[in-house]
Nucleic acid binder design. Structure first.
Lengths: 332, 332
DNA sequence: TTGTAGGCGTTATCAC
DNA sequence: GTGATAACGCCTACAA
């Protein structure tokens, strides 16, 4: 692999001049530029990013720490980030935390050593995720989806309370009277806020909150399946169900199929998170769509801006969800 | 940020010794090890990977170049790669080529400069994708999903011909008589091989190949939608349809819905690629499942092995698909 | 405008 | 077993 010195020798200039041409900063005599470019082509020179990174003590890498790339919500999110990153000249390193705090902490440490230019993280836990090491190290951080404990971090969220409110209100207004809520684990802000929205809707529509109509699971398919079965076995038996994320909804649908219950006749169903196949299943599935791609884009833009100006005050962005009423919640 | 020299001073040893302790290669006196570790903790020292990378002229990064993370097939694939990578101490950089050769080429160039430890690529084109630069630079490469032009590359594929054969044979054996095939663009090996399997099945079942029952699209939803409509308008009108990938199948389902045709009564449907919601739609969808996660794992393992021993002869792995017969192809 | 020279933080090669 | 020292390849004051 030729170095910048080989190019310099070949072009009859100094290494500094080659560097200047390559980086296009200072002005260089047109004739020299020409000779340097020719030498670069002839030798097939390519800049060694490792040396450059060390010298500049920074990389052009963004780390994205999320729980699981196989979740369509995170997939779209990552795509949004990646598109912005590419426009801004960064690459994206993927880190699946699997909601596992140890894995997440290991990634944070690794990312510190790698001197990534920035981090976008969906904190596995509001209370236990610790990004202070990153902040201390001066690494720009943007949080998405969930609010981090540390303040002063750029954040992109959706209005979970409002989204869950609309979902629940929609079911109540369709005439369902015993609407249950299947939400995520305690301590996850998304889970708690969606439960809060559910409660608000009950209250504002004159219904009483019943603990036996609320169940928590782990935001995964298996958990959704079991939790739905237990809700169906409860007393009172729900005639409506609001599920707080996409994966648990898959489990809920399986539970309903197993019990031979159909929507919207036996039970009205609304799910938080847009689902690619919501329109394809019969009956089609009513969802509270999160703008996942847009969340990713905004997070990427915030990160780029913070990298450019580390002193700017941190901002929190809250995007809206959109209720997409389909068949599963339309009371016959 | 403390450097290795700060640690050395603090522990009263040389930088070389600190390095030895940190890398655990050479044997160091137990007492010194202790002092070094204490100094590391006290100072909160963390290795600067940039300097290490430069010195060793290598990184612990794998680049994964695929067309789109939003495609569930690639998502599972990436997950498989990522899990192996983590076990082996590597991180994964994501590169979406969008099936765009320029973007792909740009990533290949970038990846060269970054001196990644290895590359896993799903080539956008068999003929036009050029990985020779990578090979010349000595970067280990593993191809997945599609066969690259250059030989001597580790490759993980599925048996597309066999999978498509089974899909088509299944439809014919169910009694569908005018089975159409919607495949991908010419030149994509996956598209061509799946078409080949379709043709083989027709022949072995005594049916004649009819050009008007074959249509090519771009492997995307929109293309699948339009191609399906044109197939339905063709003569003869198909009573069965084999769609060569997941995204086009979404388009096909939309086209069928628009025409108010239902499976399996009006038309038998089988799709290549497993689909997360295949079991949830009604009627459920018959698929030819690719072991996407497994492909990713195998590719990761091959890459790790090649990095360890760059001289080992390249191997090609072919995994099997599995026909998952569900309702959409079960002739009433 | 161009060249010289020093150093980014680490690891590997020497002597000791 | 340990310590000094020289790179790895690039960028950037500073000097010319």
């Amino acid at each position: 692999m030729p170095t910048i010195y080989d190019v310099a020798r070949h072009a009859g200039v100094s290494a500094a001049t080659v560097s200047r041409v390559l980086n296009g900063r200072a002005t260089v005599d047109a004739a020299l530029v020409e000779r340097v470019r020719a030498a670069v082509d002839e030798l097939g020179y390519r800049r060694n990013s490792l040396a450059r990174n060390l010298r500049r003590s920074s990389t052009t890498l963004w780390a994205v720490i999320i729980s699981d790339v196989e979740n369509p919500f995170f997939t779209s999110l990552v795509r949004g980030i990646e598109d912005v990153a590419q426009e801004a000249g960064y690459s994206v390193v993927l880190c699946n935390s699997d909601e596992n705090l140890d894995k997440e902490a290991a990634y944070i440490t690794a990312v510190l050593g790698e001197q990534v230019a920035g981090v976008i993280i969906s904190p596995a836990s509001e209370t236990a995720t610790d990004v202070t090491d990153l902040l201390k190290g001066g690494t720009p951080v943007v949080a998405v989806d969930r609010r981090p404990r540390a303040r002063g971090i750029d954040t992109v969220l959706v209005d979970n309370v409002q989204g869950a409110y609309e979902a629940t209100a929609h079911l109540l207004e369709q005439g369902y009277e015993r609407v249950a809520c299947l939400t995520g684990p305690e301590g996850a802000t998304t889970a708690d806020q969606r439960l809060e929205g559910y409660c608000n809707a009950l209250r504002s529509h004159g219904y009483e909150y019943s603990p036996s109509l609320v169940c928590r699971a782990d935001f995964r398919e298996r958990g959704g399946f079991e939790a739905t079965l237990s809700l169906l076995d409860g007393d009172p038996c729900p005639d409506g169900l609001f599920v707080a994320n996409n994966l648990m909804t898959v489990g809920a649908l399986e539970a309903l199929a197993q019990r031979r219950l159909s929507t919207p006749q036996d039970l009205g169903l609304v799910c938080f998170d847009e689902i690619p196949w919501a329109d394809l299943i019969r009956p089609s599935l009513t969802t509270v769509a999160q703008p996942a791609y847009e969340i990713g884009r905004r997070a990427g833009e915030l990160l780029a801006r913070r990298i450019a100006d580390p002193t700017r005050p941190a901002g929190a962005l809250m995007l809206s969800t959109e209720l997409k009423a389909r068949e599963s919640s339309s009371r016959p």
